[in-house]
């Protein structure tokens, strides 16, 4: 049995695979690095798989918290793990867009599904899940509700500030001058999409485009991003666990070596 752990900035994910790479257990916990999140995620994944820790033959940790997590056999970056996970689930994917809690990555894959090039955002919350969390707070809704608000929108309120802090004041002033929450939600999704599309264009977008990470669960962002890059985007099943899945796949590979 092989374990992949993805410790992000805002969530922890674990995946357990058997020798034939079948998924035995998975878990997503909404607390990330520096918390008990990683341990909880592993426990839940193990209990779903009906296994104890001793059954794990090899484990790989990835994500922002990978350096400080000492219990895995090896650490690999989330760039390599997301690419690995996507190539396994969607062999035709050539561009991976991963939007997580605090960073955005665009990864281009070669025809063998290996990393060909990649680009990451700067140390800035613009275009990340954190930006959407801030917007959800101002719109007084759960982050999961942003997409359904967007679905009810009649037009897009343009958010011109890239900086999350400035965008927050901009949105507050929009709301106070009577802008509809639904239209602001759409504007927030497009703001993220424009930022991510800019990043993606830096390395070039090759079809098929696949989205991973927690933000991929938000249909509003996926549709806005698809419009911005002018290409269809597919979302893998369980987009949050792709990094952990990639880590588990590497674990299986490395154990066999």
């Amino acid at each position: 049995m092989f374990l992949g752990i993805d410790i992000g900035s805002s969530s922890s994910k674990a995946v357990i695979l058997d020798e034939n790479l079948n998924l035995l257990g998975k878990a997503v916990i909404n607390t990330g690095t520096g918390t008990l999140g990683p341990e909880k995620a592993i426990e839940i994944a193990l209990s779903k798989a009906g296994l104890s820790r001793e059954a794990i033959k090899y484990s790989i940790v990835t994500g922002y918290g990978r350096i400080t997590y000492a219990k895995a056999d090896k650490q690999i970056t989330e760039i390599s793990c997301h690419a690995k996970g996507v190539a396994f689930m969607e062999p035709n994917a050539r561009t991976v867009i991963d939007i997580g809690g605090q960073d955005v990555k665009v990864i281009r894959l070669d025809d063998g599904g290996r990393v060909e090039n990649f680009v990451m955002n700067d140390k800035c919350a613009a275009g990340t899940g954190r930006f959407l969390e801030v917007m959800a707070r101002i719109l007084d809704c759960d982050i999961e509700m942003l997409a359904s608000l967007d679905a009810e929108s009649t037009k897009e309120i343009i958010i011109s500030n890239t900086c999350t802090v400035f965008a927050e004041s901009e949105v507050i002033s929009q709301l106070s001058s009577g802008a509809k929450r639904e239209n602001v939600a759409k504007g927030a999704h497009h703001a993220v999409a424009k930022r991510v599309a800019g990043l993606a264009h830096r390395i070039g977008i090759r079809p098929e485009v696949v989205m991973t990470g927690g933000v991929a669960l938000n249909k509003g962002v996926v549709s806005a991003l698809s419009q911005e890059i002018g290409q269809p985007i597919s979302v893998v099943k369980n987009p949050q666990i792709v990094g952990a899945l990639g880590a588990a796949l590497f674990a299986a590979e490395m154990f066999k070596k």
């Binding site: 970056t77 960073d103 990451m120």
Partner: peptide, 20 residues
């Protein structure tokens, strides 16, 4: 102060080149 992202990029580059 925080070189974490840079570290990830450098490590990813090394991993990417390793596979080539």
């Amino acid at each position: 102060d925080a070189a974490e992202q840079i570290r990830t990029r450098i490590q990813s580059f090394a991993e990417m080149m390793d596979k080539h």
